[in-house]
């Protein structure tokens, strides 16, 4: 039986079709989940797509965290279900407290839309098990609030638990200030929770799944998830 993926649609989401397409491309059975839905138990994995849920009013993800579907997702996460939040989805996971830290405006106060080089710091997760350790991948970013912040204690805890999964790096895989697009602390681009079943990342894997798009590296993320839930 194929892995069952649900893609949540909030008012203002705009990457749900790309996520749907990407997950289907690598073999998942995919359906949309409306933000008013209150049950996601029939899925193996949930995708919170990018976009501007609730117009980014107040703060990115601040209003979405109170959607009925988020209660169902909290329950789903408790039971060990896989959840990936991409861009605005990551911001929602932070606001909902499913991942540590918060997003600030980009350091240079600009919306950034371009490819970035990333290093896979942890390939032992449900979301990166198809990557090599330290593998260099290319995924595009498109955001205004991707400047990741967490206090010292949280950063230390995440490092100790291997929760930092992706960091922005240069073309040689070296993590440098120059390769940091948005001012994120320690070049953090993607993190998992302590339990390892919730992943948030600012880059868009669903936009890098076909040669014509400039990179195939995004497939790795979705394939890893399928592999994780097919065990």
């Amino acid at each position: 039986m194929p892995a069952r993926f649900g893609v949540v649609v909030f008012p203002g989401s705009n990457c749900e079709q790309d996520c749907h397409y990407a997950a289907r491309l690598v073999g998942a059975q995919v359906a949309y989940v409306w933000h008013q839905d209150t049950d996601v138990a029939k899925y193996d994995a949930i995708i919170l797509p990018g976009g501007f849920s609730y117009g980014d009013y107040l703060r990115t993800g601040a209003v979405a965290k109170f959607s009925p579907v988020m209660d169902a997702i909290l329950d789903f996460v408790d039971k060990g279900g896989l959840v990936i939040g991409i861009c605005n989805g990551f911001q929602i996971l932070l606001e909902a407290g499913l991942l540590p830290g918060a997003m600030l405006r980009n350091r240079d106060l600009k919306f950034i839309c371009r490819y970035t080089d990333l290093v896979v710091e942890n390939n032992q997760t449900n979301f990166t098990n198809k990557a090599l350790s330290g593998e260099l991948i290319r995924l595009p970013i498109a955001h205004n609030e991707g400047n990741y912040y967490a206090d010292e204690e949280t950063l230390g805890e995440m490092a100790a638990n291997g929760q930092v999964v992706l960091r922005y790096c240069d073309t040689n895989g070296i993590v440098t200030d120059a390769a940091n697009p948005n001012g994120s602390l320690q070049n953090i681009a993607g993190i998992v929770n302590k339990q390892g079943n919730v992943f948030g990342l600012m880059p868009h894997p669903e936009r890098a799944i076909e040669t014509v798009l400039g990179s195939l590296d995004g497939q790795m993320i979705f394939k890893s998830m399928i592999s994780a839930v097919s065990k």
Binding site: A62, A102, Y149
Partner: peptide
């Protein structure tokens, strides 16, 4: 709960 994000 809503108007601020206590992390930042």
């Amino acid at each position: 709960d809503l108007l601020s994000n206590p992390v930042i």
